[in-house]
Write a protein that binds this DNA or RNA. Structure first.
Lengths: 246, 246
DNA sequence: CGTAATGTTGATTTGTATCAACGAGTGTGG
DNA sequence: CCACACTCGTTGATACAAATCAACATTACG
């Protein structure tokens, strides 16, 4: 069932060893983390946490994709975070979850019991420093997303989402974005709509339009082929260089 | 000219001493910060930094309000951060600014030269820990904002903005939100529109509607009076309790 | 094979943007 | 002192992008 199962228990072979919250830890610190860690797997679609639940762990995403979302009483839902491998889930010092967390694809988490993790963080600056860096990156991503939500057209939103996923996949796989690229879209039309503040019908129409114009093509429902990444970038409405300044 | 001028140079009397990035610093650490700090003031409307500029400092907002915004080539603008007193501006390790920063009201910053600040951060965990905490809070605020941008109606957006400002002012002033409250709205209609992903005309119309229905009233253009805060909260679309869970 | 989940497409409605005119307040210079 | 320009805000008429309502297609699955 699980096509992304993860059966390592050893940080030495962990696929996110050098990107996750533990990236800067030395051997001793890893050993300390090892004592309080455990793996958990979820199947695509399974809920991980409901907003308001007590949360006694924090975690790194090892494989798969999870979403954070906020729901209004009448059912309107906005995704507010998309957790890809190496992303961190939870907040040290926080007892109750403020968002719903769902496994979008099959998912493996590397969980740490929260209390001991907090204590360990107090002792090892490496962890706090890395978490700060990751949180600042997430804040930047959230701000880019705010521009998408507030000011982009439906077409630009879709193009932006595809470009973001494509770039993140490319960076994980160390492949180039320049020539034709193919990637798996881990989201349903509804999840994309919740990400972008659209309805699923609008998502479907805009994807069809991009397809019709040859900017993307599909293999099945989920596999996306982008023959010319620059062409896609034009449709995002962003300036060509992507505005990267580290 | 400046009605919010700040002429202390002493952290002991600083209004944000216990909320800013230096909140947890002891006397020795404050002394170290003192060596690399300087104050700068801006008048309402003045630009502080343009996106792409080199940034050789980081700073705390001492008094006043600043905005972070992202602009698209065609002029569409989205505000992505609103910095109130005690909020932190800049990112350690980052050389170029990714956003435009503007003084929305008269503003005083407590600036730290970036390089020495980074070094100091490496030595004093208190600063990094506080910055992590503040960044996590900002991330939460950004996520609440994403729900507003993606899923709320124009009316709900306006009500949400008013509620957010009202609550933050109340918490700074240690006053209650329960009975009638009055506060200064530091934003122009255009800035509100950029915050909420609306046009200024729509902002104006929705404020007029809330006024017509007695949910708010205005003294002049900027002074807002909220006779019944719960009534305003209903208009935000959020559930009554505000969903606070620390 | 039937049923449910997911996705596509069409017809219509609607909320907000856009275009446009105007009002109130403020500062400036003749 | 008043005419003028300029900024900021309000209000009205109209256009349009996306939501909504609805039907149907495709795929997965017991």
């Amino acid at each position: 069932m699980s096509d992304t199962s993860f059966d390592h228990k050893d940080c030495g072979t962990c696929p996110i060893r050098h990107r996750a919250v533990c990236a800067r830890c030395d051997t001793d610190e890893l050993a300390e983390l090892d004592v309080i860690k455990y793996y958990r797997s979820y199947e695509a679609g399974q809920p991980i946490i409901w907003s308001g639940d007590r949360m006694d762990f924090v975690a790194s995403v090892v494989t798969g994709v999870a979403s954070l979302s906020q729901a209004m009483e009448d059912g309107r839902t906005q995704m507010v975070g998309l957790l890809l491998p190496s992303d961190f889930l939870g907040r040290p010092g926080r007892e109750f979850a403020p968002y719903d967390v769902v496994a979008v694809s099959n998912l493996t988490l590397c969980c740490f019991r929260r209390k001991p993790f907090e204590q360990l963080m107090g002792r090892t600056p490496h962890i706090g420093a890395r978490l700060l860096e990751m949180t600042l990156d997430e804040l930047d991503a959230a701000r880019e997303w705010m521009l998408i939500l507030g000011r982009k057209t439906a077409r630009e939103k879709i193009a932006s989402l595809l470009a973001i996923i494509a770039q993140r996949e490319a960076s994980l796989a160390h492949s180039s974005t320049s020539d034709g690229m193919v990637f798996e879209l881990p989201l349903t039309r509804e999840a994309m709509a919740d990400y972008l503040g659209l309805t699923l019908e609008t998502v479907s129409r805009q994807i069809s339009a991009l397809k019709r114009e040859g900017i993307v093509s599909l293999e099945g429902k989920r596999r996306i082929l982008v023959p010319d990444f620059d062409r896609l970038m034009i449709e995002t409405g962003d300036d060509a260089d992507g505005g990267l300044m580290i």
